[in-house]
């Protein structure tokens, strides 16, 4: 209990120091380019009240969610196949390296050129950016699968579905968690760029607008709101799931 109290105190202190430094820096520069924390907070509440921030946040989150889901499913499947079959791995390895190294911006621009400034193009662009990362991580996981458990599944003929669910996926869960974590962080950042370049709503679009208006308080307010939401996802979804997946480790 005291440990939890201590970590709470730690958090408040560290946050307080950050705000203090921000306050001092804002006072020192005395410029609209670096607003005071209070100004940002005020802007935040105003944007919430008008419903603007929740709307754009929701749109961006929806895109993030779909792109995240798509890249996890497709990336995991590719990674699994590549990790299990040496022939496939050897053949497609250079493809994977190519896709891993294409700049996100190039993918986004090409998607918009090929598929138009549409929702599908936007989500696709984000997924294509993330899929190679997921595939590379999951390939490592698939390579590390234990032979003895595969032998078990094969000799008892438990079937593909049960093998996947009870034998393979539990072994992959640490790799899945790692790629989901880094995946979410990457995906939402790319979503903003996608929105900035070719959408008419979402946080990225708003940021673009604020950039043109030199509205720094709004830029900061949106950023803080978004970071807070991502942290919540981490705390309320990823952490509990990980605890559940690791319940057998005593």
């Amino acid at each position: 209990m005291s440990g939890r109290l201590l970590s709470a105190a730690n958090f408040i202190l560290s946050l307080g120091l950050f705000l203090l430094l921000w306050q001092l820096a804002a006072a020192w520069t005395d410029s609209p380019a670096l607003p005071f924390p209070a100004t940002v907070l005020e802007t935040f509440f105003l944007a919430v009240e008008t419903g603007e921030l929740p709307y754009h946040l929701a749109v961006t989150l929806a895109r993030t969610f779909v792109a995240f889901l798509l890249s996890m499913i497709i990336g995991s499947s590719i990674g699994l196949v590549m990790g299990r079959s040496r022939r496939v791995d050897r053949f497609f390895d250079s493809w994977l390296i190519l896709f891993l190294n294409i700049p996100a911006l190039v993918v986004i621009i090409l998607c918009y050129i090929w598929f138009g400034l549409t929702e599908v193009a936007a989500v696709l662009a984000v997924s294509v950016n993330k899929i190679p990362n997921v595939a590379a991580t999951m390939r490592e996981g698939a390579r590390a699968l234990e032979r003895q458990y595969m032998d078990l599944a094969l000799s008892y003929r438990i079937g593909v579905w049960k093998t996947l669910r009870h034998v393979i996926l539990p072994q992959l869960s640490p790799f899945f968690a790692a790629s989901a974590r880094s995946g979410l962080a990457l995906v939402w950042k790319i979503v903003l760029v996608v929105e900035l370049l070719g959408r008419s709503n979402g946080v990225g679009f708003q940021l673009h607008l604020f950039f043109q208006l030199f509205d720094v308080p709004s830029i900061m307010a949106y950023t803080i709101a978004f970071v807070a939401v991502i942290q919540m996802i981490e705390i309320f979804i990823f952490k509990p799931w990980e605890r559940h997946a690791n319940r057998w480790r005593s």
Partner: peptide, 24 residues
């Protein structure tokens, strides 16, 4: 039907004993 007892117990560590049996 073939039952196989491997050299290592090869029980799935992420499933309980009961679940390990139910699986097969």
């Amino acid at each position: 039907r073939i039952g196989y007892v491997f050299q290592s117990p090869a029980l799935l560590p992420w499933r309980t004993v009961g679940e390990n049996l139910k699986l097969v």
